[in-house]
Write a protein that binds this DNA or RNA. Structure first.
Length: 423
RNA sequence: GUGGACGUAGCUCAGCUGGUAGAGCCCCGGAUUGUGAUUCCGGCCGUCGUGGGUUCGAGCCCCAUCGUCCACCCCA
């Protein structure tokens, strides 16, 4: 035997036992998207590295140290997408979707970031992603958030809390950044090494620090919400009203800043205390400047991304149930002629009764062994086929959840099974 | 990227101060003829993550490496 090829760090296989959770999440989110008029878009996993650098920001952690980028055979720099927004904006521009149009879009798929893996944090991870283009008012901000609240409800998820904030316009944020830098410079010696490093580059990130020694210092720092431009303040106030009338509870977290440079005005994050340090399950915000930054016509835009692994972990943590796939009918058969006839019979039942789930035992072994498998499969009914049955042209039908075993002619079998299952 | 814990059969784990591997579950077969519980009997399954080193001898010690998990970091 040759040696095993090991899987890559942070790359997971979703095995059949896990797949139903993924299907549940995907079908619920698709369902909700469709009831809100969001349409699916699918974009490539691979883009020019330049796209992400320009969109997310040259000096963000994602671009600086987490992106899987490499040169192709022609020497151009490509990257596996670390998030979906940049690609969707690029696709919208490439395909002329933003010319006097409005679009509500969603996509579902894998993203890639070369971080050190932990529970709820992987190198290939999946996101459900929503984006709305062409809507400048706070109503769409509210709609996007209401939509996520509905998803939680339908998925049976509790223990998530909504935090919101406004970053204001780029100009207002630049003024605030200067103010903040000035404040922290005055207390330079109290900053930890990370924060000292961030002071010049991105002082807003200091507000996010979990370092308890700096908590007081941070609490006393000037608040962005006090230094917003008037329009952003009005936008934010209106959003809060809309959330209240929509029945979605929130807390304003003035220190909520995002690690991607393109956000402006509304930012929000759904957090949980059930997953350890990976506490963000869904987050997003407005990015009114990004489209022009990527060369398109000025278009207001907003979106969010949901971490699928985290949501699934959360569902499991909270004891949510997901239906397991099990056959309705299990065909037990022994003997060469019975095997051939059984296969044929299963086909004809599937044709006559579409939707009926029929699993055949092709594993051989004694009737006893096959019945054990039939039981374990969760099937409601076993169809038994041996040489006797084949000779008589009828199958033995045994209810596995109590009831008498009967014999049914091959011709009447499909209808008989449908009747048994539906009761 | 930094610090730490861990890595033994498909799964959950045991393995004393180094003497060349064990349990339960699972799976397979049997307890008289073709029928799923339980019980009983029997059986299969391991390059002890990988590669080096120390030693007469290593799952147990040392080094490296890969992976998982936790915290930081970052973020979905």
């Amino acid at each position: 035997m040759s040696e095993h090829i090991e899987p890559l760090r942070g790359m997971n296989d979703v095995l059949p036992d896990e797949a139903p959770w993924w299907n549940r999440l995907e079908s619920v989110t698709r369902e909700v998207f469709s009831t809100y008029g969001y349409r699916e878009i699918r974009v490539p996993l691979l883009e020019r590295t330049q796209l992400f650098k320009r969109a997310i920001g040259e000096h963000t952690d994602i671009v600086e140290k987490e992106m899987f980028s490499f040169e192709d055979r022609d020497g151009q720099s490509l990257a596996l997408r670390p998030e979906a927004t940049a690609s969707i904006v690029r696709a919208a521009i490439s395909n002329g979707l933003l010319h006097n149009q409005k679009h509500r879009l969603f996509t579902i798929g894998p993203m890639f970031r070369g971080e050190r893996p932990q529970k709820g944090r992987y190198r290939q991870f999946y996101q459900v992603d929503a984006e709305a283009f062409g809507y400048s008012g706070p109503e769409v901000d509210a709609e996007l958030i209401l939509m996520t609240a509905r998803m939680w409800q339908l998925l049976g998820i509790s223990r998530v809390r909504l935090e919101i904030n406004s970053l204001g316009t780029a100009e207002a944020r630049a003024r605030y950044r200067d103010l903040l830098r000035e404040y922290f410079r005055g207390h330079y010696s109290q900053l930890d090494a990370d924060s000292q490093r961030r002071l010049e580059g991105n002082p807003l990130r200091i507000l996010d620090s979990k370092n308890a020694d700096m908590a007081q210092l941070i609490a006393a720092a000037p608040l962005l919400t006090d230094h917003l431009d008037d329009e952003s303040t009005a936008h934010f106030e209106r959003l809060k009203k809309l959330l209240e009338s929509g029945g979605v509870a929130y807390t304003v977290n003035p220190r909520l800043v995002r690690g991607l440079d393109y956000y402006s005005r509304t930012v929000f994050e759904w957090v949980t205390d059930a997953l350890g340090s990976q506490n963000a399950v869904c987050s997003g915000g407005r990015y009114d400047g990004l489209v022009t930054q990527l060369g398109g016509e000025a278009t207001p835009a907003i979106g969010w991304a949901m971490g699928m692994e985290r949501v699934i972990l959360l569902m499991q943590e909270l004891g949510c149930q997901v239906p397991v796939e099990q056959p309705d009918v299990y065909v037990v058969m022994a003997g060469e002629s019975a095997l051939a006839r059984g296969l044929q019979l299963a086909e004809s039942i599937r044709t006559a009764a579409p939707g009926l789930k029929i699993e055949t035992d092709l594993g051989g072994g004694s009737f006893k062994a096959q019945f054990k498998r039939a039981d374990k499969s969760g099937a409601h009914v076993a169809v038994v086929l041996g040489d006797d049955e084949v000779a008589r042209g009828e199958a033995s039908v045994k209810p596995l959840r109590g009831g008498e075993q009967t014999t049914v002619s091959f011709d009447a079998l499909a209808a008989h099974l449908v009747a048994m299952i539906s009761k």
